[in-house]
Design a binder for these strands. Sequence first.
DNA 1: CTGAAAGCGCTAACAT
DNA 2: ATGTTAGCGCTTTCAG
Lengths: 335, 335
Amino acid sequence: MVSIDDVAGAAGVSTATVSRALSGRGHVSAATRERVVATAQSLGYVVSSSASSLASGRTRNVGVIVPFLDRWFFSTVLSGISSVLTRRGFDITLYNITADADARQKVFESFRQRRRVDAIIAVAVELDERETERLTGLDIPIIAVGGRNPSLRTLAIDDVAVARLATEHLLTLGHRRVAYIGADAAYDLDFHVPSRRQEGFETAVREAGLSLEDAVQESADFTIQGGYHATKRLLGTPGPRATGIFAASDETAIGALLAARDLGVAVPQGVSVIGIDGHELSEFFGLTTVAQYPFEQGARAAEALLAGLEGTPGAEETPAPYRLIVRSTTAAPLR
Amino acid sequence: MVSIDDVAGAAGVSTATVSRALSGRGHVSAATRERVVATAQSLGYVVSSSASSLASGRTRNVGVIVPFLDRWFFSTVLSGISSVLTRRGFDITLYNITADADARQKVFESFRQRRRVDAIIAVAVELDERETERLTGLDIPIIAVGGRNPSLRTLAIDDVAVARLATEHLLTLGHRRVAYIGADAAYDLDFHVPSRRQEGFETAVREAGLSLEDAVQESADFTIQGGYHATKRLLGTPGPRATGIFAASDETAIGALLAARDLGVAVPQGVSVIGIDGHELSEFFGLTTVAQYPFEQGARAAEALLAGLEGTPGAEETPAPYRLIVRSTTAAPLR
DNA sequence: CTGAAAGCGCTAACAT
DNA sequence: ATGTTAGCGCTTTCAG
């Protein structure tokens, strides 16, 4: 293995100069730098990250904590993170925490146990107090994306506002009996988004002067299947029926669309459906939705983190943007 | 920061003993070990991964290369990998290579440049010769999952066989005009699976004594949208129509289902549809499919790799399993 | 701008 | 079973 000494020897300089020339820290004359870079190149020299980290205390590695790898939102945020971190020469260490408490525990230990990262991004994980403490105790920059954590710097949409917007869209169209399909408590435990969206829904309903009696709620699990079954229950239950459905995610909403179709209820004539996400499938289904931009959220979080690492205080945090996209699944109710 | 010397001092032993007690390498009396572990615990000591790696040459970190993060197959494989690696105390460093050649280049450099991993898992990435060389030149264990690479140890289903099986299912039911929806060349460049599946399709067709003239082909991109549009073209083209569609992925097949529905073609009466994957949505749609098990593929690959690292030669490689699951989207053609 | 040299915190021979 | 000690390969003062 070619080491820094080999390069130093071949280039006729000291190891310190090689280090400076290659890392860009400290001053080296242009000529020397060039020579060093060239010999390093020709010798096939590459720094040893462990030696470098040990000596400098920097790892050029950031840890990313995600609860799911196979859900659209999470994998998209991860892509965004990855795109900027890779470009800036940082590695990503992935910590996939699951419901399994033991495994979860292990992950948090692992942070301490290995001090392997310069910073951490937590993607929509609801951390309990101890976990949060453990993380903050690491004394490295941490940022949360997509799930508010009161004690962490957070980049996320305002779920309450987004849900209000979606509900108000339905209300503005004239719907008076609206339904919300969220997620059940089990799901909420790890990820408080559904209940915040519920809050936004209820607020909008109340502010419109409607009674919550007219605002049915069903719960699903953020999947197409879940939305489908919830909607079947919703539309299949005897009694006055909701004319507008607000689903907590686009996948849920797509499930609702499929269920309505199977029940012979036309959309939007028989029932209007709106989701949240701006999922890649939403356009395909003509789904009205409040789009958020997880890729950008990930990218922005990563950038903010790097800015922090590099001392630049980072631009003032603005909440993540979202936008109502009206397509063909919502319309005024028939009467 | 508490170091190994602090622990050694407090426990009244040498640093070597602390290292042995904590790492499990070498012999330490049970009593000493206990004492060391206890003091380490109480002091809040954690090893420095860089120091440890530098001294031992081991990183307890494996690199995972994936081309996509937001596609079912990839994220599921990744989950599988993550579950076993985490359990065994290994970290995973994620390398998301994209189409962007520059970024891609950078990733490969990064491997050399940082020598940060003990092993590598390549998930369904088609690597060119230089890239493969670079990887094998690292001289660490490498395993490919989900995409055959002739010069790498590979864990994957036999795509040709799987495609044959799917096609033969259609043929066995009596279909004589069958169609294949694969993926176009651009997609194939990075990921040769579609063309292997096409090969299996064609083989089955020929072996059934049919002419390839009766075997239409369309291409999509492994997504629901893609499958939808391809199917619309397929079923909307004048002339004799295929009665059975073999889609290269479940998502493609689901798109086909939706397209058929929109065209008023009943499934399976008007057209049969079969996919490949065993995607979580396939059951929901009643889709007949050849299931593969990406989570298990990831897990097995990770285990094989670890076995390699630990000197255990690893069980003989058996190809990844798959299974035909007949549901309600395939039936004998009407006549 | 460059060099000398002291570590960074741990592991693994080698002794005992 | 445990201690001694020489590195692992780099970064970073401190001098010059």
